[in-house]
């Protein structure tokens, strides 16, 4: 229970960091993965899960007003699920556990996106209440109302992880055992295939932005150097 609580507290803090515009970027999966791993005593597994989640969204550009998947929360969920389900499975079925954790993380990201669509529509009510307070001369209360928004962000991250992680660990452990070793070996190479998703998004970002020369140069130099290196 202590592990689930620790993970949920970190999830709450990451959601707060991401949504409040604190934006130190600790909530990016590649950073939050090792942090969660550190809290659970397995930073290298946290780094792996965080990295795999991050590379899928490498070329994603967050623009205000656009549809934003909740990548930080999804990454935190994926890292926690991977570490705890791997522990539950005694270190076996790592490939299946990683695949299912990342899939669950993607669902959490989508859930976060849906919840925040509603929040951004409804949080206007908070501002209209603040306006009312200002008209009544209760200026401090109006300012505090803004800070109360932080509680919502924290609570959302905390609740999402405390609900998803314990149930997710049970499901992943059961599915991984049921799927067996055949599945585990096949899906184990997922970690070598996922960077291509990020590479595709990056190519789209920079080729569309007319930086194809530098993208191509980076590709060719590395490819040639690795070829000669080996």
């Amino acid at each position: 229970m202590g592990a689930y609580l620790a993970v949920s507290l970190i999830g709450g803090a990451m959601a707060l960091e991401n949504r409040s515009s604190l934006r130190l970027m600790l909530s990016q999966p590649i950073c939050s993965g090792p942090i969660i791993g550190l809290a659970l005593g397995s930073p290298s597994d946290g780094l792996l899960a965080g990295l795999m989640f991050q590379v899928m969204f490498l070329g994603y550009v967050r623009l205000r007003g656009g549809r934003q998947p909740d990548i930080p929360l999804g990454g935190a969920a994926a890292a926690a699920l991977y570490i705890l389900s791997l522990r539950r499975l005694g270190g076996a079925y790592g490939g299946t556990a990683l695949f299912l954790s990342l899939l669950a993380g993607l669902f959490v990201s989508f859930g976060g996106y849906l919840i925040y669509r509603v929040w951004e529509r409804r949080s206007w009510a908070v501002q209209s209440l603040a306006v009312r307070y200002v008209l009544e001369g209760r200026y401090r209360l109006a300012a505090r109302l803004h800070m109360a928004g932080l509680l919502f962000h924290f609570a959302f991250g905390f609740l999402a992880l405390i609900l998803v992680v314990p149930a997710g660990v049970e499901c992943i452990a059961a599915l991984a055992v049921r799927a067996g070793n055949g599945w585990n070996e096949s899906i184990g190479s997922m970690r070598h295939a996922l960077p291509f998703i990020g590479a595709g998004l990056l190519a789209r970002l920079y080729i569309a932005k007319d930086r194809s020369f530098w993208f191509g140069a980076g590709f060719l130099v590395t490819y040639v150097l690795t070829l000669f290196g080996s």
């Binding site: 190479s189 590479a199 190519a203 980076g218 590395t222 490819y223």
Partner: peptide
Amino acid sequence: LAGCAAFASGVFAALAVVRAYAFG
């Protein structure tokens, strides 16, 4: 910096190809 970002993206893509080929 945008040039560096595009270059780093190319490096990342090439490493993905090389590592996938070495593994699978």
